[in-house]
Design a protein around this nucleic acid. Structure first.
Length: 493
RNA sequence: GCGGGCGUAGUUCAAUGGUAGAACGGCAGCCUUCCAAGCUGCAUAUGCGAGUUCGAUUCUCGUCGCCCGCUCCA
């Protein structure tokens, strides 16, 4: 992973944000090549979702439209979604053991007579273990105690509680709320009445516009609304390069359908999304599909499949790349209740009104970029660069490099002409300096799939050498065929 | 947020209470008719701030950042 981060910086993929000020934890900037890579992934997703959506399970084309909603919305929106005030669990720290616990995961054994100390246990502690420890610390029986979850216990009693991993009372701090949302103030004055939040996920902007889209776009259920944009979470611990950052980009589709069709569409989207990753160079063998366990599910979801990728930092295990969630009709129902606006869908053909259910394939764009980089990173001691980036041609930041074999002679003007022609359609590099091997090596390291070399034969017969990044094999093709060659490789299904 | 480790050119490393050296990369020149990142030269660093000291990159503190573990990841 260290080597990958170093290459990303060395070659201009990804830099620490505010680098010259020493950086800022959890924030990253995309350099010249990184932004190309990210845009390639973003554009491909948009094309596959909005411009050319897949054919549905019944053989008919499906409809998906896009939106681009505001990062800051009316704060009541986050009350409806549950992000404000709701379910982020209070945490308790132990000053002695240095551990942190979710207050509702700690069970406190309080003496029934109110005399002496209370003892806290993890909620999963075994009965005989509890009995033993109580005996040892208090010389009393289990029957002398009543239990209560720590988040229900009066803070005044904390002084007499022995934490789960220590022997003395009074080491637990009072429960503290953690809110993952960044907040700001709308307008010139800062006060609670104009407090607002940076969106912690992009999907809300879709639900908020559900009615607007239905009323303006002539879409019919089933249909989808897609959005790509930034989201912000004040993560406790940003980790693993850009994997968990505080500012990140999501590509989200909310697929609205009838409740009875949920299973069909859920399977359809899992399948469709898998093919997407395969098509851009993430092999199925590196993906894992986690059917998220009931107790782990988010409050709104009855089923979620995490599409996971084998990142270097998680290997041999996997970590989340995309989540495909059945959100039920939670969001529209909540927003209907909080806003007082009717959000039900009216089906003209069936003459009935209902709340659509939602399947949400939600992809981390920035996580996708990391997966592409990790997947492409290939060590090859036999070549001068020692490493090359095996990007799928459609994702590669540079599609080709045009290299005059020498910086003298008539090679340069021909190369320049080819370069100007190609860059009308593709992101390409012209590199004249230094010897040819050095230039190939440089292109290997940034993952350029093809190099076109102009030599004396080019002057004679208008052919150029194509050098393949992965095989290092060379073939000659006519200059007129270069564009078609690139098109075929890049747009190949 | 807690605990531990760490912070020297772009990258990977070296050295030192008297301000630093290499390799690779970058740039310039040379050489090159296809893997020769070969040759010559040039530029570039002690994260930031404070303290101790005649003098700090080295010691101390703070801060920022990175790595590992915990926690978190709705």
């Amino acid at each position: 992973m260290k080597d990958i981060v170093a290459l990303c910086k060395r070659r201009g993929f990804i830099f620490a944000a505010s680098d010259i000020y020493g950086g800022l934890n959890g924030f990253w900037d995309y350099g010249p090549l990184g932004v190309e890579l990210k845009n390639n992934l973003r554009d491909r997703w948009w094309k596959d979702m909005v411009i050319t959506p897949p054919i549905g399970p019944d053989g008919n084309p499906i409809d998906i439209v896009g939106v681009d909603s505001s990062i800051i919305q009316n704060p009541r929106c986050w009350e409806a979604s549950g992000h404000v005030g709701g379910f982020n669990d209070p945490m308790v720290d132990c000053k002695e053991s240095k551990k942190r616990y979710r207050a509702d995961h700690v069970v406190v054994y309080l003496p029934k007579d109110g005399q002496g100390v209370a003892v806290a246990f993890d909620k999963d502690a075994e009965d005989d273990e509890i009995e033993k420890r109580l005996k040892k610390l208090t010389k009393k029986d289990v029957s002398d105690f009543e239990t209560e979850k720590l988040d229900q216990v009066d803070v005044a009693k904390f002084e007499s509680i022995i934490g789960p991993d220590v022997k003395n009372a009074g080491t637990l701090t009072e429960p503290r709320q953690f809110n993952m949302m960044f907040h700001t103030y709308v307008g010139a004055t800062a006060g609670d009445e104009n407090k607002a939040y940076l969106r912690p996920e992009t999907c809300a902007g879709i639900f908020l516009n559900f009615k607007n889209v239905v009323d303006s776009s002539r879409v019919k259920v089933p249909f989808g609304i897609a959005q790509i944009g930034k989201a912000f979470r004040n993560e406790v611990t940003p980790r693993n390069f850009i994997f968990r950052s505080r500012e990140f980009e999501q590509m989200e589709l909310e697929w609205f359908c009838a409740e009875e069709d949920v299973k069909m569409w859920f399977d359809f989207w899992v399948d469709t999304r898998t093919k997407f990753w395969e098509a851009i160079g993430i092999p199925k063998s590196e993906l894992h599909f986690l059917d998220v366990a009931k107790e782990e599910l988010a409050h709104y979801s009855s089923r979620t499949i995490d599409v996971e990728y084998r990142f270097p930092f998680s290997a041999p295990e996997f970590d989340e790349l995309e989540g495909i969630a059945h959100r039920g009709c939670f969001d529209l129902t909540q927003h209907q209740e909080f806003s007082g606006q009717k959000l039900e869908y009216f089906d003209q053909a069936e003459n009935k009104r209902f709340m659509p259910h939602v399947i949400e394939p939600s992809t981390g764009l920035t996580r996708g970029v990391l997966a592409l980089i990790c997947q492409a990173y290939t060590v090859d001691e036999s070549r001068p660069s020692g490493v090359y980036m095996n990007f799928h041609p459609s994702m590669a930041p540079k599609k080709a490099a045009i290299l005059p074999l020498t910086a003298k002679d008539e090679h340069v003007p021909i190369a320049q002409k080819l370069y100007l022609d190609l860059r009308e359609e593709f992101s390409v590099d012209l590199d004249v300096k230094q010897n040819i091997g050095k230039r190939y090596a440089r292109q290997d390291e940034i993952g350029t799939p093809y190099c076109f070399t102009i030599d004396n034969d080019t002057i004679a017969d208008q052919t150029v050498t194509v050098r393949d990044r992965n095989t290092m094999a060379q073939e000659r093709i006519h200059m007129n065929k270069v564009k078609d060659f690139l098109r075929e490789k890049i747009y190949a299904k």
